[in-house]
Design a protein around this nucleic acid. Structure first.
Length: 323
DNA sequence: ATACCCTCCACAATGTACAG
DNA sequence: CTGTACATTGTGGAGGGTAT
């Protein structure tokens, strides 16, 4: 029973020692972009600059040296975790600013910023092992070690960490800048822009926002942050179209009807940027929207749903709402 | 070892903006 | 009202990570 995790970790260790070669049987089918281009979150491979300072470290294969440090596949003694692994975590944090250690992260060879005895050590596996022990093993880590790791900022839950340190700060900044969080699909947090939280830079925020909305990614975290997401105008439930209809189009039509006594919106009509017009709709091209509702199938679903309200407003849409 | 979950991405269908 | 360019949604698959 004690043996099994060791076998599993050994396999992982072997796989991670040849990261670029692991294309697997499915690799032959793919014409996919290189892995590094597909990452939402930066990985150690992309952080090379920060570690090696462009010394061309990749030009020669790293020499294999004997590792004197405790092997991550072994269940380490408490003393070993504390005396040998903790200092490495501390160094990682100093270099990266966080402790989200990717599983395939190894201490770089010939890097004087790390203890020489640790060069080549799979710190990523060690971290994974720590998480595993704490989450699944009956023999939990001792409280004082957990506290020490906590104090260091150890990442026990990767999704929680990404949400708290990367996603939410980026959404908050996006909202500060744009006044909303309808992040365009291809928006990437600028890499070199000091205006953005450092931990979020390079993040494909558009993809993340879409996946949170459509695929319910980070569901647990989004639910816990529901209140703040609402304050940030993050469209969490349903589509952006539906939200716009409910918060902009329909309320604007209602004000239009109150003000003018009819709903014959001229094509060039812009929602005035004053009260009582709905603040979120200010400067919206309501005339174009109504035009599209008439001519195309814009907002079809919403029109069908709110047909009665539209009839009451006197809005005429051929085929959808009786003349 | 392996099943399952999550992230990332491509693609097609559909919706929107806007000039003419 | 039309044509066209562009944006968004929804779906499904690849592949890495996680749990057991």
């Amino acid at each position: 029973m004690v043996k099994q995790p060791q076998i599993g970790l050994l396999v992982l260790l072997q796989a991670s020692s040849v990261p670029q070669a692991v294309t697997g049987p499915r690799g032959a089918l793919g014409t996919r972009a290189p892995l590094s281009g597909r990452r939402l979150f930066t990985s150690p491979a992309e952080d090379k600059g920060a570690l090696s300072d462009n010394h061309g470290a990749s030009e020669r294969p790293p020499p294999r040296v004997r590792k004197s440090i405790v092997h991550p596949r072994d269940v380490p003694s408490r003393t070993a975790w504390r005396s040998q692994v903790s200092p490495l975590l501390q160094t990682f944090k100093e270099l990266k600013g966080h402790l989200l250690v990717p599983t395939d992260f190894e201490i770089p060879m010939d890097d004087k910023r790390w203890a020489e005895s640790a060069w080549g050590y799979s710190l990523g596996l060690a971290v994974k092992r720590l998480r595993q022990i704490q989450r699944h093993s009956k023999n939990k880590l001792p409280d004082d070690l957990v506290e020490a790791l906590d104090a260091m900022g150890f990442v026990w839950d990767v999704s929680d960490f990404k949400w708290t340190v990367i996603v939410m700060p980026a959404l908050r900044r996006f909202h500060q800048i744009h006044g909303h969080t309808d992040v365009p699909r291809y928006f990437i947090v600028p890499q070199e822009d000091g205006d953005w939280p450092e931990s979020s830079r390079g993040t494909r925020l558009g993809f993340i926002a879409m996946n949170i909305r459509v695929k319910k990614a980070f569901a647990k975290q989004a639910a816990a942050s529901a209140e703040e997401l609402k304050r940030l105008d993050f469209c969490l439930d349903g589509t952006i179209y539906d939200r716009d209809w409910n918060e902009k189009v329909l309320p604007s039509l209602e004000v239009y009807h109150r003000e003018k006594g009819h709903c014959n919106v001229e094509t060039s009509f812009l929602v005035p940027s004053t009260l009582p017009w709905p603040r979120k709709a200010w400067a919206m091209r309501l005339g174009i929207a109504v035009d599209d509702m008439k001519v195309r199938q814009a907002y079809t679903e919403q029109i069908a749903r709110d047909k009665d309200r539209l009839i009451a407003l006197g809005l005429r849409l051929r085929g959808q709402i009786p003349e």
